[in-house]
């Protein structure tokens, strides 16, 4: 469930940011998405990408543990 929420929030956030970018830069949706996802070489954007990925892993782990706890309770 946490993973699901994570994905919803992630995609939602992306859509929101790109909508705003579309408004500001007067570009099409795909242009904006492309711009958001190109990692500019030499910058430290990978850091932030890595963080988000860690967040994703975390949410999976949390989900797993939640499920395990639930199972234990039922037993």
């Amino acid at each position: 469930m946490v993973t699901f929420v994570y994905l919803v929030m992630y995609i939602g956030m992306l859509v929101l940011i790109s909508l705003i970018d579309m408004f500001i830069w007067k570009q099409s949706f795909f242009q904006v998405i492309l711009r958001l996802f190109t990692l500019d070489e030499g910058t430290n954007e990978w850091l932030i990408g890595g963080t988000v990925f860690i967040g994703f892993i975390c949410s999976i782990v949390i989900d797993y543990r939640l499920r395990k706890n639930k199972g234990q309770k039922q037993l």
């Binding site: 850091l47 963080t51 860690i54 975390c58 782990v61 949390i62 543990r65």
Partner: peptide, 17 residues
């Protein structure tokens, strides 16, 4: 446990930087 992960992230971000 979760805090441990969190601390790990902090430390790793230190080391990376």
């Amino acid at each position: 446990m979760k805090k441990r992960i969190f601390i790990l992230i902090c430390i790793s971000s230190f080391l990376l930087t």
